[in-house]
């Protein structure tokens, strides 16, 4: 696998949210606005890259029996650092994201990449893998958040974007049920796209 393929797989074929359906809690919880989603995505990507690099570095020093607890400690340390830095320097974003920042510790994507990739591969590859996965995750939650913010409050990044008040925003989309429903329809859309693509490749053969 080339480096480019390694990077792109996290965004498309193995997108953690849309394809693997992992780490769903923040996908639903912080997507009330695009700004929150981007903030969450950035925090998540930083933790993922650092954890993949660190774990790839120490992978040969950790005995196999305690590798999972050791990874968890490493990830928890990184998350706490990100948590403190955000609390200190991006205060209002930090308050919006709330509990979902410390909960990156138990995000299956981070531990999953540590176990499935970083523990078996070199530092550079692990970093690229993490960057791809982080971008894939950020793009996914940004899409969910954009849909919810536009439909739910008629705004994007806080700007009113509905021309001539064409429709009244449907508040339900920024409430809890809207999160589930938006995600359900998006996943169905992805299914349609994947099915079409598969059909095409079969026909080409």
């Amino acid at each position: 696998m080339t480096k480019k393929q390694n990077l792109l797989k996290g965004i498309f074929q193995e997108n953690p949210v849309f394809v693997l359906i992992l780490g769903m809690c923040p996908v639903l919880g912080v997507t009330t606005s695009l700004l929150n989603a981007l903030g969450m995505g950035a925090a998540f990507t930083v933790v993922l890259i650092l954890s993949n690099i660190l774990i790839s570095l120490i992978r040969k020093l950790i005995p196999n029996d305690i590798r999972i607890p050791a990874y968890i400690v490493v990830i928890a340390t990184l998350v706490t650092i990100v948590d403190m830095v955000m609390n200190a320097f991006t205060f209002s974003l930090y308050e919006e994201l709330g509990i979902f920042i410390p909960l990156i510790v138990v995000n299956c994507v981070v531990l999953g990449r540590a176990e499935a990739y970083a523990s078996k591969n070199g530092v550079v590859d692990s970093a690229i893998d993490a960057l791809g996965m982080g971008l894939g995750y950020t793009i996914a939650i940004a899409i969910v958040a954009s849909i919810r913010e536009i439909l739910g409050s008629g705004e994007l990044l806080g700007f009113n974007i509905i021309p001539f008040n064409l429709f009244e925003p449907a508040t339900i989309f920024i409430l809890a049920p809207g999160a589930f429903i938006t995600l359900g329809f998006l996943l169905a859309l992805i299914n349609v796209i994947v099915a079409k693509r598969n059909k095409k490749t079969v026909e080409n053969k």
Binding site: I62, P63, I66, A70, V73, V74, A76, T77, I81, M84
Partner: peptide, 23 residues
Amino acid sequence: LVLILFIISAFSGLILGVVNEFT
């Protein structure tokens, strides 16, 4: 094994303590 885990945790605690000083 416990010793190794303990070393990792202690190291984490140390780093966090330093970051905490700054934040």
